[in-house]
């Protein structure tokens, strides 16, 4: 009985893990879908979010940092989009790959130069420490809070993309930016806004995970790989594809750990990606985007 409960706990834990991946993966997918840029610097913005929490918390507290941190990272994302991304939308994607790779290195080294290589001590507020019991299942109070914030952020994003004029233009821009041009709608401000939202989500993930992981300059590189796997499995351009993929990756990870095969959990995720790419090269729910075909 205990073993079954533990397996179910691990399964559910894995499912909940999917929510962390989701915050980062959604942003990656959005930037690629609209601008065709594979943002290898996405993990670096996640790290900036964590450092923002470290710097802001002594002044405005954890909850203040939770609001201000992502906003500052989003503003930085907008500057990067205006200053850098905008020059790379219409040329070979390999150049934007090189650009964002370089940007990731510059951000990481800048963090190392300013804050030092040593991890920074950062703790969660006492009110969020401890466990929540539901029958025999226990879970960390902080993670439940984290998932609540993630669900709220993803829900708000879905509403923005599917229930507003802004969202309609963005979705049309993903499929065919030329048509928007003929209608006299400039995509440029929307590209900036999408970059700000996507990078702001990475910043939000950074603030939320700073109390759980060591805050250090290369922390972004540690999460970005899993996020890329989620995007590839889910399929580019599909909001729900990324959501289901993040949860699926979490479940696979949880199942492996529940079966006592924790050493092989990442291998199982990569195998899943391999199988999906073989059977559905566009990902599970990837949309056909004419200009990328």
């Amino acid at each position: 009985m205990l073993t079954v409960m533990l397996f179910l706990s691990q399964l559910l834990n894995g499912l909940l893990d999917g929510f962390y991946y989701l915050l980062i993966a959604l942003g990656l997918s959005m930037i690629f879908s609209l601008g065709g840029i594979v943002n290898l610097a996405h993990g670096a913005f996640f790290a900036i979010g964590a450092y923002a929490a470290f710097v802001l918390t002594p002044y405005i507290g954890f909850f203040g940092a939770l609001i201000m941190g992502p906003l500052l990272v989003a503003a930085l994302g907008m500057l990067v989009e205006r200053g850098l991304f905008t020059r790379f939308y219409r040329i070979d994607p390999i150049y934007s790959l090189l650009l964002t790779f370089g940007l990731a290195m510059i951000i990481e080294q800048a963090l190392r130069w300013y804050f030092g290589a040593s991890p920074k001590a950062y703790s969660m507020p006492d009110i969020l420490r401890g466990q929540v019991f539901v029958a025999d299942f226990i879970y960390s109070r902080y993670r439940i809070f984290l998932i609540g914030v993630a669900v709220a952020a993803v829900g708000a994003l879905w509403l923005l993309l599917n229930r507003t004029a802004f969202g309609r233009i963005v979705r049309a821009g993903i499929q065919n930016p030329e048509i928007l041009g003929t209608l006299g709608i400039s995509l440029r401000p929307y590209l900036s806004a999408v970059a700000a939202i996507a990078i702001g989500l990475a910043g939000l993930a950074g603030v939320l995970l700073a109390p759980l992981y060591p805050v250090h300059p290369s922390m972004g590189a540690e999460v970005v790989t899993a996020a890329f796997v989620v995007v590839v499995i889910g399929g580019l351009g599909s909001f729900w594809g990324v959501v289901w993929s993040a949860l699926l990756v979490g479940v696979v990870k949880g199942t492996m750990i529940g079966l006592g095969l924790s050493s092989y959990s990442m291998l199982a995720i990569y195998l899943l990606m391999f199988v999906v790419l073989l059977l559905r090269p566009r990902g599970l729910m990837g949309e056909r985007i004419t200009r990328f075909e």
Binding site: P119, Y122, M124, Y213, P214
Partner: peptide, 28 residues
């Protein structure tokens, strides 16, 4: 950090330690 997050009170020890990582975890 995550041991503290779950609020466990098991006795903790080990056979390897690095001071920098204790500093990174913080006094809490």
């Amino acid at each position: 950090k995550q041991f503290g997050e779950f609020g466990f009170d098991y006795t903790l020890g080990g056979f390897d330690y690095n001071t920098i990582l204790a500093w990174a975890a913080g006094v809490d």
